[in-house]
């Protein structure tokens, strides 16, 4: 028996929206640790890894490991029937061929259940070793989305160059070229800033990401890599899951684009770099 109840159903809805256009069919692995997925897009260029830890659910029960093959478009259709503030419960029998999604509104006076047929999916699972990356960039997820969107109107690929002080995004196309440089925010700016208000005297608040890039760079070695913007734009559909995005880059390795899911886990996207011929 597998049963997982998430109070904030909007999280599950957002997760599905962020991956359903990249991957068609995928196996969800339900274990005592949590609800996880690893799947590649059809061209085997990018990969999504999702982890929702059991401890992040309001209720979680998994008697034995269960693999649930689902069509993500169909799963998304069902989850769209849940309101954002609904509680969502997923249920499946160990040997069953359906998964049940149960939605409950906050007043608990409307309860819906949807059954979706599971499918047998042959998937290729990739072994991704733990790697020390040469460059780690943490920045506002909104800004990253904006940059990927803006550059894709000029070119098809983006070259990301990380140095100790900045991350530079470059593209070129038939109409011209574009460079966007985000400077690493100095330590003082990254931390809380003090604001004086007449009523409260001195008050501390966090700098809003909309007021700047809030770029944090951890660098062992400067890295420059080129990626297809189409995939990065697809990853950015996860933007609403987290205020920040983390990019991890190393020479001649796929980039890892991670969005943390508060108290629950993460969604990570891997994208193979392009190489010059």
């Amino acid at each position: 028996m597998f049963e997982a109840r998430i109070l904030q159903g909007s999280i599950l809805k957002k997760v599905l929206e962020s991956i359903k256009d990249l991957v068609t069919d995928a196996n969800f692995e339900c274990t005592a640790n949590g609800f996880a997925l690893q799947a590649m897009d059809s061209s085997h260029v990018s990969l999504v890894a999702l982890m929702l830890r059991s401890t992040g659910f309001d209720h979680y029960r998994c008697d034995r490991d269960v693999t649930m093959g689902m069509n993500l478009l169909n799963m998304s259709k069902m989850l769209k029937c849940a309101d954002n503030d609904d509680t969502i419960t997923m249920k499946a029998d160990d040997a069953g061929d359906v998964v049940t999604f149960m939605f409950e509104n906050p007043k608990a006076d409307k309860i819906s259940d949807f059954q979706m047929k599971l499918m047998d999916i042959d998937t290729e699972h990739l072994g991704i070793p733990d790697t020390e990356y040469e460059a780690t960039v943490k920045m506002s997820s909104n800004e990253f989305q904006r940059i990927c969107r803006d550059l894709s109107s000029i070119g098809d690929t983006v070259t990301i160059a990380v140095t100790k002080d900045s991350v530079k995004f470059t593209t070129s196309g038939d109409i011209g070229e574009a460079n966007i440089t985000c400077r690493r925010t100095s330590d003082g700016d990254m931390k809380e800033e003090k604001v004086k208000t007449e009523e409260d005297g001195e008050k501390v608040h966090n700098t809003k990401s909309s007021e700047g890039q809030n770029v944090d760079i951890d660098l062992q070695e400067p890295v420059t890599l080129t990626f297809a913007l189409r995939y990065l734009n697809s990853f950015c559909k996860a933007t609403s899951l987290c205020e920040n995005v983390r990019l991890q880059l190393s020479k001649e390795l796929p980039v890892v684009v991670q969005y943390l899911i508060e108290d629950m886990g993460y969604v990570r996207f891997y994208l193979a770099p392009k190489i010059e011929e």
Partner: peptide
């Protein structure tokens, strides 16, 4: 021109 790599070139199949 840039050529697109495949993920299997970096990670092993399990």
């Amino acid at each position: 021109t840039a050529v697109q790599n495949n993920l299997a070139e970096f990670y092993s199949l399990m």
